[in-house]
């Protein structure tokens, strides 16, 4: 009988995927873990209890990250949807689309460093509003490119029909286009939320360490060699996206190809 090696490879794959989640959760419950001990001396809920107390500001960082990401996702999705219509129906569509690829393809941290002078001049350097604006500048091109496939002949025909029947542009958006694009709007919202949620480089440059989102916190804890709180911040950072990915996993890749 021929023995199949496939189950072993698949089991290894599952272990490799789940291991980081389990390891980070366990590390977040640990403290006082000296080399060469294989297990930590303390294992309990002390670190997590400190999150509720505001000693390390993690709860504040979590709230701030949620507010920033929700703001970036909302503004980028709505403006991306509306402006992608203008770009898609424009005679210079390809040139305009190409222009949006530049900030999208550039490393956000380099983009932010070159923009920091302007943020300083308009008084947004080191503020949460500045971070929202900076993250919007990289999330917006994504949203615009994402919605470009929505605006085609079929959508145009619906808009013409509304117009023929006497509907205004506002009615066209509110009664036809938004309901038609409901699923896409939701996916784009999730994706731009994740772009903002995962962002580190741009946030560190524009926020100058004053706007401490969760990614900034992870770095601070690494610098302080406080790996247990680092792991705890990582847990707070990865579990909301797990939930979001579960919700929109079916659609993510169909829109990418």
């Amino acid at each position: 009988m021929k023995l199949s090696w496939k189950p072993y490879i698949l089991s290894l794959l599952v272990i490799l995927i789940i291991f980081p989640f389990v390891y980070l959760v366990l590390l977040s419950f640990a403290s006082d873990w000296q080399f060469p001990n294989l297990l930590p001396s303390y294992f309990g809920s002390r670190n997590w209890q400190m999150v509720v107390g505001s000693e390390n500001g993690l709860l504040g960082s979590l709230t701030l990250s949620i507010i920033i990401s929700l703001s970036v996702a909302t503004i980028s999705t709505l403006s991306g949807f509306i402006l992608s219509r203008t770009v898609s129906y424009h005679s210079k569509k390809h040139t305009l689309t190409l222009l949006t690829y530049f900030p999208y393809i550039l490393a956000p941290v380099v983009f932010g460093a070159c923009l920091s002078y302007f943020f300083l001049k308009i008084g947004l350097f080191g503020t949460a509003t500045g971070v929202v604006l900076a993250q919007f500048m990289i999330a917006f091109p994504y949203a615009l490119i994402f919605f470009s496939s929505f605006w085609g002949n079929r959508t145009k025909s619906f808009e013409n029909l509304v117009s023929t029947l006497g509907g205004s542009q506002w009615q066209s958006f509110s009664k036809v286009l938004f309901p038609m694009a409901g699923g896409m709007l939701l996916i784009c919202f999730f994706q731009t939320f994740l772009i903002s949620w995962f962002e580190y480089g741009l946030t560190s440059i524009i926020g100058v360490g004053k706007v401490q989102t969760l990614t900034i916190k992870v770095f601070l804890f690494i610098k302080e060699s406080n790996f247990f709180f680092g792991a705890l911040s990582c847990c707070l950072l990865i579990f909301p996206p797990v939930l979001l990915l579960y919700i929109n996993k079916k659609y993510v890749f169909n829109k990418l190809i």
Binding site: L13, Y200, T215, L237, V242
Partner: peptide
């Protein structure tokens, strides 16, 4: 197989 997408670069 979707789970690793929830892990950002910093983590």
């Amino acid at each position: 197989i979707y789970l690793p997408l929830a892990i950002p670069g910093v983590v």
